[in-house]
Nucleic acid binder design. Structure first.
Length: 146
DNA sequence: TTTCTTACA
DNA sequence: TGTAAGTA
């Protein structure tokens, strides 16, 4: 009953997601390789995309088509999300954190071994989720400026 | 049939 | 980006 309105639940196989977004499954997998999106993975290793994932991809497509931004450009924006501030990351954690230093790759593309990121699914992290859709991303960035 | 990974004219 | 091979 609650699955119907929860945009976080993985629902669509890659073929359906591709059809919704009007892009190829190949392109969809490429976005994942680039770290733009983190779809849910079943034990069979098959991907499942949620409504939130679709919205995220829509935002990415708009950025590419309308704003003519490159995939690397999007990666750069994501890499600048203050993850260490969003989750309570100690100053000690930051010292040897690749994600903290990176200006080219989103934090969720790194494999952590020490801090909380090691035990949490990046897909379920607010750092990833709260910046996944165009509108929320704008609001988040504005709140930082204010 | 669909999806997965890897590779490539 | 598209397509192919060989699996699961």
């Amino acid at each position: 009953m609650e699955n119907l309105d929860n945009i976080e639940v993985p629902l669509f196989p890659i073929s359906v997601a591709a059809r919704i977004l009007d892009i190829s499954v190949h392109t969809l997998r490429m976005y994942e390789r680039e770290g733009l999106v983190v779809p849910f993975k079943k034990k069979s290793n098959h991907r499942l995309y949620s409504k939130a994932d679709i919205e995220r991809l829509n935002c990415i497509r708009r950025a590419i088509n309308e704003s003519k931004i490159s995939i690397n450009g999007i990666k750069t924006i994501y890499s600048l999300i203050p993850c260490w501030d969003i989750i309570k990351c100690s100053s000690k954690d930051r010292e040897n954190c690749e994600a903290y230093k990176s200006h080219s790759n989103p934090c969720w593309t790194f494999k952590h071994s020490d801090n909380i990121c090691a035990t949490n699914e990046c897909r379920d992290c607010s750092v990833y989720k709260d910046y996944g859709e165009c509108k929320s991303l704008k609001e988040k960035l504005i709140s930082v400026i204010k």
